[in-house]
Design a binder for these strands. Sequence first.
DNA 1: CCGGTTACTGAAACCGGTTACATTATGACT
DNA 2: AGTCATAATGTAACCGGTTTCAGTAACCGG
Lengths: 336, 336
Amino acid sequence: MATVSRYLNRSAPISEEVSARLEEVMAELRYVPHAAARHLASQKTRVVGLLLNNLHNDFFVPLLNGIEGVVRKHEYNLVIATYHSEGREFPPPIGPHNTDGLLVFSDGLTDEDLIALHERKFPVVLVHRTPPNGLRIPSVTVENKKITIELIDHMIKFHGKKRILFMRGPIHQEDSLWREAGYKNALAANGLPFDEALVLNGEFERDIAYKVLGDFLADENHPPFDAVFTGDDDAAIGVLAALRDKGYRVPEDVSVIGFDNLGFSSFLTPPLTTVSAPTEKVGQIATEKLFSLFEEQFLEDVTLLPTELIVRRSCGCNFESEELRQGGDQVHIYNR
Amino acid sequence: MATVSRYLNRSAPISEEVSARLEEVMAELRYVPHAAARHLASQKTRVVGLLLNNLHNDFFVPLLNGIEGVVRKHEYNLVIATYHSEGREFPPPIGPHNTDGLLVFSDGLTDEDLIALHERKFPVVLVHRTPPNGLRIPSVTVENKKITIELIDHMIKFHGKKRILFMRGPIHQEDSLWREAGYKNALAANGLPFDEALVLNGEFERDIAYKVLGDFLADENHPPFDAVFTGDDDAAIGVLAALRDKGYRVPEDVSVIGFDNLGFSSFLTPPLTTVSAPTEKVGQIATEKLFSLFEEQFLEDVTLLPTELIVRRSCGCNFESEELRQGGDQVHIYNR
DNA sequence: CCGGTTACTGAAACCGGTTACATTATGACT
DNA sequence: AGTCATAATGTAACCGGTTTCAGTAACCGG
């Protein structure tokens, strides 16, 4: 058994002949090492965990795809669990007891949980979230604020929008907060007032955004608006539908802009002006970082991936159909 | 230690006082049982595996959501792996060595692999696939053929369509095969010829469907068609976009119908006529079945969940905007 | 008062690998 | 020839639980 172990792990030299015989016998017996026994003895699970707060957004498909690819390349396993900040029981379903490291998406864990893990030197990489108060936990996310300012700036300067409704995401979600900050910032920079009445809570969910905007529009006395900035593309679908059903034309009457550039965004009618976030890449890089942590390599704390403006038609920009014909995901980058 | 084990597993009565002390000490020590040790000793992993062939379709979000919910309810863990039929290495990343049972989506495993697992009496539930040659492996999928006949029938009888292009899915995918069978069947029943030139391979992928249909349309001599039946909604987006970019109006010039009723389907323009498949429910039921298998309960072999026609506007049916106003997912069931 | 349960707990074997340590053989160097 | 590193393999402790077996105390019916 010891020899087999050493052979499989290449942890010591094994003679040619023995190797050959092992190979042969293992094939014949269809021998597969018992994972739990390895874990117990080696104190390594060869498992990485992904902690999410829910599984309601199409955003997760590219993210998962990125993560899974890297995990598989390293011949590790991936366990997925959802875990909600409220009503939480201890312990989280995944952690040091059954994984070698954790990818924590957004607020999948509380600050206290993170601190506890960090003190135990348990490998964690944050995804779409930065570490609490100066903790040196690696983090991978995308640039939100500057690009949002660009986006809003485009609406104001280029399209002359003055009253841009903000369909914000979950209030504890970092992306959501940065996007809101960018929104306010751009308004201020252009001398426009921030109006709380123009902020709705879409929670980054299609159905919720649809309902919330529908209710808003149903009120005869709703404040006027000439554009909607939606926290993410999934919610943008709900916004588009609500506007359509109430008889608004996009972009003629109201502009709509989203965020994330999900797979369907260029296929909506009108094609959605949004921000391209490299979601699959975020998953890949975060996972690579986690594997680097396993080898205790030094890591910069926060990795901010660049985002870029994708100007399509929903903001009011018009393109010749010839241009659109060239590809389903035809990208027009707006340069200031 | 033995007492702790018995307490945690409720596998033997423990006195009040000892229980109380255990509770106290465990809290103080933040004791969490070592998963691998339990697995090794108990020969149970408390893990279910999900084997997919890829992670490219938004379809997986509701499926995963359904699965994960049930897994969590049972306090099990969920590991996810992709595994491709071609170029396969042995062993699959997940199986008897590290899970208690497997959910196998579509062709995530070959027939031989399935047979081998079945002979070992390893719990497996098939998802969107039926067992090979009479093997008694439980399976959960949706009714494809009859509903497709209804759908195509609607196009022919109600809308007078005569040349319906079929954007088919992967040729080894069962759903895809059944949908094709339904398509051919409906044509035959209505005395329409089946034309191989009207079948394209969209692979259930947005970008592929867009490209394939775009290429088809670019050919000046392409056969005439008056409708497109797309194997799934994700690909339908690609179809809608390709048609739009080539100047076709939907549904005035060409009707488009999909399958699956994904979250965004009712939000497209025009809203997509499709078939509602209870994807989240498929995930839930399949997972429940797997847990039943753990307790060796008898199970009917194949569970076929009902699907229903969702008639929206992309097929050519028209609804008053008043009706649409009532909800984002307003469902109109077509009764023959 | 006695045999037979039931309630509870401790001791120890066991799950299937990993790895520190011991052992032998071999070749290189002084 | 003697010392020493290197190669290859065997031996046995160990990882942290589960579970069988044994043993003690309390309880119950006759």
